[in-house]
Design a protein around this nucleic acid. Structure first.
Length: 257
DNA sequence: ATGGTGGCCCGGCCA
């Protein structure tokens, strides 16, 4: 089973690229973030035409997350409870082909001295609490999405350029490590410990062509899924060409019994 | 160089 995640930076602007990507990558499950759509505008029909069920959680202009699946889409949940109310539409979950899948869009945080930064840390702590309350490290689970945190210095083009910035600060990395401590594995990093590959590049300044990016789009899985994962890829092709998102898709292949 | 690019939707916010 191929499980993918992609921050599309507006699904309305990106639908043709997403359809193109689905056609050649053929994911079984695709988690989307930053659809920037209201539920009523989500193009369920376009995905149905490709053989996928879909569920969306969005209220319009900002955020918005979805799960698209051709291996089942059941027990859909949205949000993180009350803590999510102030943070917008950033989580949707569903059971897909025997795996619990979450599509998450972690708050950006903006700057270390901005009020959104402690809110980001609180959001990540809340995510761990929700995992504790609703799941178990022994169950098949994949938490997929834009975490807006580069797990360590291998995941940024030049750590010295990030001094005093978000996405690399120790508290953010600790919050991410705390999720892993609960029982999640950054399976791309486990498979490829030495690769310095990125999933996001700023639109500005030719960052993509200069290899100035970050790996902030992650697929965190419980050990039972990690043990069955045979392959992982960050697909740079999708960052090229006409009207790309600033993020590119990441996927894993899981051997299903 | 305190910029720059792109998406929301048309002035300014957000990433």
């Amino acid at each position: 089973m191929r499980i993918a995640t992609w921050n599309v930076n507006s699904l309305n602007a990106r639908l043709a690229r997403v359809e193109e990507w689905i056609a050649y990558a053929r994911p079984d499950v695709l988690c989307l973030q930053e659809t920037k759509q209201a539920d009523a505008a989500f193009p369920h029909g376009a995905f149905a035409a490709l053989g996928y069920e879909s569920a969306h959680h969005g209220d319009g202009r900002w955020n918005g997350v979805a799960i698209i699946s051709k291996v089942g889409l059941e027990n859909v949940t949205t949000g993180l409870g009350s803590a999510d109310d102030a943070e917008g539409t950033r989580v949707i979950g569903a059971d897909c082909g025997g795996v619990r899948v979450l599509s998450v869009y972690v708050p950006n945080g903006r700057a270390l001295d901005d009020e959104h930064y402690p809110a980001k840390l609180a959001w990540l702590a809340r995510l761990r609490t929700v995992l504790e309350e609703t799941s178990s490290p022994d169950r098949p689970l994949a938490v997929c999405g834009d975490f807006n945190v580069a797990p360590d210095d291998r995941d940024v083009w030049d750590p010295s350029e990030f001094t005093g910035m978000t996405h690399v600060s120790a508290p953010e990395r600790e919050a991410l490590a705390n999720l892993e401590e609960w029982g999640l594995v950054d399976v791309f990093r486990r498979l490829y410990p030495d690769d310095r590959l990125f999933s996001w590049w700023d639109y500005r300044g030719g960052s993509f062509h200069r290899h100035r990016g970050m790996r902030i789009d992650l697929i965190l899985v419980t050990e039972v899924v990690a043990q069955q994962t045979t392959y992982a890829l960050i697909d740079r092709q999708a960052r090229k060409g006409e009207k790309p998102s600033d993020h590119t898709p990441v996927f894993i292949d899981v051997a299903v019994d």
